[in-house]
């Protein structure tokens, strides 16, 4: 009974600490997943913001100075159309 009892005592505490540890690890994994998702979303956000603003700029500039479109803006517009078509 004596040795048995100590074993049971150890088992009880071990279950508690192991359970706690496993729970915290699972929580950590979940948080890392969320973090990864936040990272990808940030990427998407910056991407879409870049394309959106450049698209707006391109339209406004093309409206105001229709015939003097710089090559730089043209290339920007190309990337925009590419990006939007890839998104869709």
């Amino acid at each position: 009974m004596e040795e048995n009892a100590l074993e049971f005592l150890f088992a009880g505490f071990a279950v508690f600490w192991a359970g706690l540890f496993i729970y915290l690890v699972l929580l950590q994994i979940r948080l890392r997943d969320i973090q990864q998702e936040v990272a990808t979303l940030e990427e998407r956000l910056t991407e879409s913001e870049n394309t959106d603003t450049s698209y707006g700029e391109a339209i406004s500039t093309s409206e105001s100075t229709a015939d003097s479109t710089t090559p730089n803006e043209l290339s920007k517009r190309d990337t925009t159309t590419n990006a939007s078509s890839r998104d869709a």
Binding site: L31, E37, V38, S48
Partner: peptide
Amino acid sequence: DSEQLAQRTDRMRMYLDQRG
């Protein structure tokens, strides 16, 4: 706090999906 973070992430994704 992590559930609330998940909620905010989910909202952000929905917003981006809508915009996309």
